[in-house]
Write a protein that binds this DNA or RNA. Structure first.
Lengths: 301, 301
DNA sequence: ACAGCCTGTTCGGAATTTCGTACAATGGCC
DNA sequence: GGCCATTGTACGAAATTCCGAACAGGCTGT
């Protein structure tokens, strides 16, 4: 068997997928220069240019595209094969890569993870926090947590964490002292509010329900934040009314630095779901996590 | 993407297939110790024993068997993908691994190889000589040369070299002086003959044809050889009658150190064929060789 | 039963790969 | 149009892997 330049091919696959040496290096915990070296070796050996690279842009040559296309299933197969040995261990081992919204990362996952990690001591949890992202699987995550039950093909959703959550309104006593309290969401248009912007750039409108009819309001904002912590801090400082996950406000409400606003208009909705692709190979850590969630749900109900 | 221990996996595949560290090392041009190291690393990382090894025997654990089973198609796919970039070169590159009988290696291949290698300067020819072997493809060869048109499924045979060859008899003048010459094959039973043993241990009987009827004779032997060169030398030394490919005897007959015996009983048969599997991925060097043979055959006819 | 050969492993030195830093080049942004 | 952040690469140092020889152990043939 002619020895395959496997490390070089792996490096090529990483760079080709990331379309960047440095990004690929970060993603895999190696240095950019080692990838650069590996690619030079590979191209010298094949005597074929695989990547067209200016100092600013990496693109595939036709040969590179063809190679990557054939290489990926092979590497995926090997990854799956490697994971397969996990079934011969008493306890599964490896990394579980999740992509979850901020709230879940802060208030849902820690409590679940504590029990899960204790149950499976050889599994490492790798959590990325991202509110906007949808193609969770494509970017190398094993599974994602989302709220909407968006029904992509082959995607399976199972409940995780609390089955109902709610958005509640709140404001600092100092703010209420100055501006009063709204009785109805439409009053918000006369107030100063603290809004949230997703990393996509979209500013989240507030939605309410009246007699079964849903309506949204985009109130005037003095503060638009990107992290919920900042927004809560701004609310506590009296910069406006905040309307977000109850979990984010619980501590401030308890301490009295924030007080409820529009309490009758609290929006309840169903809790988050864990999504994963049923057709892709399921790594042992993911399988363990799903099994764990299912037994927890069964016990809970 | 969790970084895959690809070199270690490749080492494991090599050792697992060869069922031996040293054999695998030789096969791939590496050292046994590096394979030993790689396997230790892999098993430590997975915390699963993959190979049961006494100092005398290597066998797969169940985990190892499962891993190998899933690993092989992945590696094959990658090898094919790598070969695929050859189509982006002006001239194909790589190694062509052939398994051919001794006669072909000595008298047929050199002349063909000269033209082939000149035509494709980036191809390396790797020739193993083996008379008995049948499962040519399974052991990592791209193709094999054989005489019998054994029709395994998906195997394709194309002619290579001379379309007829023959077995001729000969003996040294000194032998004939002492024992006379046989007129009919059955007379061989009163003579001393030089026989050939395949590496499998089987001794080849001599076969003749009389009025369309084929019959075989296993004459008494003073000498049984494993290499044709030795057998010819023995014949020249007067130790008996030899009956083998005319090519092996041509030089001695020309020089008169051997003279023909049983000339009317010369056995002609059709020349050798190149066999390859049509269903497996065809590496570029093999494709080039087949193409080359076909055009040579077309031109020759 | 036993000797001898051949196996997989160990160990220190050599070769290769990897890393961090520096540098030239390029494309987005104002 | 020019600046500057950021990209891919070059290069010497450091780490890792690889190699060859020596070693311990078991299987084969007598």
């Amino acid at each position: 068997m002619a020895d395959l330049p496997l490390t070089e091919l792996d490096a090529f696959a990483a760079v080709a997928q990331a379309r960047s040496f440095r990004a690929a290096a970060k993603l895999r915990g190696a240095s950019a220069s080692s990838l650069s070296d590996a690619l030079r070796r590979l191209e010298e050996r094949l005597e074929v240019r695989l990547l067209n690279r200016t100092t600013r842009n990496v693109s595939l040559t036709e040969a590179g595209a063809r190679l990557l296309e054939r290489l990926r299933p092979g590497l995926a197969e090997i990854e799956a094969a490697l994971d397969g040995v996990n079934s011969f261990r008493d306890t599964p081992m490896g990394r579980l890569r999740l992509n979850v919204p901020g709230v879940v990362a802060r208030f849902v996952l820690p409590e679940i993870a504590a029990r899960f990690l204790a149950r499976y001591p050889d599994i490492t949890l790798d959590v990325a926090t991202n509110d906007a992202f949808v193609d969770v699987i494509g970017e190398g995550f094993d599974a994602g947590v989302r709220y909407e039950e968006s029904l992509q093909s082959d995607m399976i959703a199972i409940p995780i964490g609390p089955r109902t959550q709610s958005y509640v309104g709140a404001a600092a006593p100092s703010y209420i002292e100055r501006f009063g309290v709204p009785d109805h969401p439409r009053d918000l248009l006369q107030h100063q509010c603290i809004l949230h912007r997703f990393s996509s750039g979209r500013v989240l409108p507030w939605s309410f329900e009246e007699e079964g009819r849903e309506f949204t309001i985009l109130p005037p904002a003095r503060v638009i934040g990107e992290t919920s912590d900042l927004e809560v801090a701004m609310a506590v400082a009296g910069h406006g009314i905040i309307f977000t996950f109850s979990e984010f406000l619980a501590e401030a409400l308890k301490q009295g630095t924030l007080v409820p606003v529009l309490a009758p208009w609290t929006q309840s909705f169903s809790g988050p779901f864990l999504y994963y692709n049923s057709r892709r190979h399921m790594p042992a850590p993911l399988k363990a996590f799903i099994e764990f969630l299912k037994t927890e749900n069964r016990r809970g109900s």
